[in-house]
Simulated scan of single mutants.
Amino acid sequence: MKKLTTDFRLIIGLLLAHVLMYFTFQDKAVFWYIFTASLLFLISYSILNEEVEDQLSFFSYILYGALSGILLYGIFWVGNSLFELLNLPFTKEISKLYGRYSPTLLWHYIVLILIAVPGEEIFWRGFVQKRLLKFTSIPAGIFLSSILYASVHLYSTHWILAFAAFIAGIYWGFLYSWKKSMPLVIVSHLLFDLLLFLIFPFY
């Protein structure tokens, strides 16, 4: 743990992520503008400080990415269906999240595809998780990076968003550790988001 606390690039990166995401969630009216700028900055910081891995062929990462994205959407769909079946209060929170942060304009979807999804994966899996794994076991590194990924979503004041980020972080963290392919997790994340927001939204 002592060595981990001396990884100043990781610590600075996490501090920057928290500051940027704090301001990102402050005002719904400018969310997509600040979110875009924040992810562009974090992409730049990650690429300057860590190499991006890609150990799969184009066909392999498209296939694994698509299948894993569909599977994760299915897991979330089952969870949402159970919330509705049991009439849990979480359904109202999910509905609020859709109304507050879902992409609604064409440029939102362009940002989602080209900046937001790649940015989150490059920073949280390709930078944070990869650096953590230099000091911890694979399960511990995936778990800790997922906790950190979830923590910045708490600024939204919707704990269900942070919980969803934690579950997704575990899932994509495992994929990245298993296949060592950034394009794979980007495709998985992208298809998941498109299913969630555009193709088969819950609300």
Rank of each mutant, 00 (worst) to 15 (best):
K3P: 04
D7W: 05
F8P: 01
I11C: 03
L14Q: 01
A17Y: 11
H18F: 15
V19L: 15
Q26M: 13
Q26E: 13
Q26G: 03
A29S: 15
F35I: 03
F35P: 04
S38R: 10
F41P: 02
I43M: 06
S44Q: 11
Y45F: 15
S46P: 10
L48F: 15
E53C: 02
D54R: 08
L56C: 08
S57C: 11
F58E: 08
I62H: 04
Y73I: 02
Y73P: 03
I75R: 05
W77L: 12
G79Q: 05
G79R: 01
N80Y: 13
F83P: 07
E84H: 07
N87I: 11
L88Y: 10
E93A: 04
S95A: 12
L97V: 03
Y101P: 06
A116C: 01
S137F: 00
P139G: 06
A140E: 09
G141W: 06
G141R: 08
S145I: 09
H158W: 09
H158F: 14
L161D: 04
A168S: 14
A168L: 14
A168W: 03
G169F: 09
F174M: 11
S177D: 02
S177N: 08
M182C: 02
L190P: 08
L190A: 10
L191T: 00
L194P: 05
L196C: 04
L198C: 05
L198G: 05
I199M: 02
F200E: 06
Y203S: 11
